Computed example of a mutant assay.
Amino acid sequence: MGTLAYGSSGGRLYVEDRALSHLKIVMATKLRRNESFTLSWRQFDGSGRETLWIHPSIPLRFTFEEVDAPSLNVRWIEEMMYSANSTGGIVLTEENIAA
């Protein structure tokens, strides 16, 4: 289980390493372009959902439990990038492995 630390407040989002690896690529691409966006997810305990406003000037850190990076699913990255470019922003979802 990896973590996404955002801002100086120490807030952390715990995300499975494989999902975090894909999310990192999409977020880094958007931020490299100096683009802001939202990131949303459902609470793991089913109690609701959260959304973060991601801005290039706010510190961001990805921490992975696994030493080796996983193989990447280009389709999943494309789906996340498509949602990142929409008005709803990135919605962290399960990986769709089917081709």
Score class of each variant (00 low, 15 high):
residue 98 A to R: 12
residue 23 L to Q: 05
residue 73 N to I: 06
residue 64 F to M: 05
residue 10 G to A: 00
residue 40 S to K: 14
residue 47 S to Y: 03
residue 78 E to A: 11
residue 11 G to H: 12
residue 2 G to W: 09
residue 65 E to F: 06
residue 37 F to T: 01
residue 63 T to L: 12
residue 75 R to S: 15
residue 40 S to C: 09
residue 3 T to M: 09
residue 58 I to P: 00
residue 68 D to Y: 14
residue 50 E to T: 08
residue 42 R to M: 15
residue 14 Y to N: 09
residue 74 V to W: 14
residue 61 R to L: 13
residue 52 L to N: 02
residue 11 G to F: 11
residue 32 R to H: 14
residue 80 M to H: 04
residue 25 I to F: 13
residue 63 T to S: 10
residue 6 Y to S: 05
residue 18 R to Q: 11
residue 1 M to P: 09
residue 21 S to R: 12
residue 97 I to Q: 07
residue 68 D to H: 14
residue 7 G to Y: 02
residue 8 S to M: 07
residue 81 M to C: 06
residue 67 V to D: 10
residue 13 L to F: 05
residue 28 A to Y: 14
residue 85 N to W: 09
residue 49 R to C: 07
residue 22 H to T: 10
residue 77 I to W: 07
residue 23 L to V: 10
residue 78 E to M: 07
residue 81 M to G: 01
residue 29 T to G: 13
residue 48 G to R: 02
residue 76 W to C: 09
residue 74 V to T: 11
residue 78 E to C: 08
residue 37 F to K: 00
residue 7 G to I: 01
residue 11 G to R: 10
residue 22 H to P: 04
residue 59 P to W: 15
residue 88 G to R: 14
residue 55 H to G: 01
residue 50 E to Y: 09
residue 44 F to G: 13
residue 9 S to M: 09
residue 17 D to A: 04
residue 43 Q to L: 15
residue 1 M to A: 10
residue 73 N to G: 03
residue 28 A to L: 06
residue 93 T to M: 11
residue 26 V to R: 01
residue 29 T to D: 15
residue 77 I to N: 09
residue 74 V to P: 03
residue 32 R to P: 00
residue 37 F to C: 03
residue 54 I to C: 11
residue 74 V to E: 15
residue 20 L to D: 00
residue 79 E to W: 04
residue 98 A to D: 08
residue 28 A to S: 13
residue 69 A to P: 13
residue 92 L to S: 00
residue 77 I to V: 15
residue 7 G to C: 01
residue 20 L to T: 03
residue 70 P to R: 09
residue 29 T to E: 14
residue 46 G to P: 11
residue 9 S to E: 13
residue 15 V to T: 06
residue 83 S to C: 02
residue 82 Y to C: 09
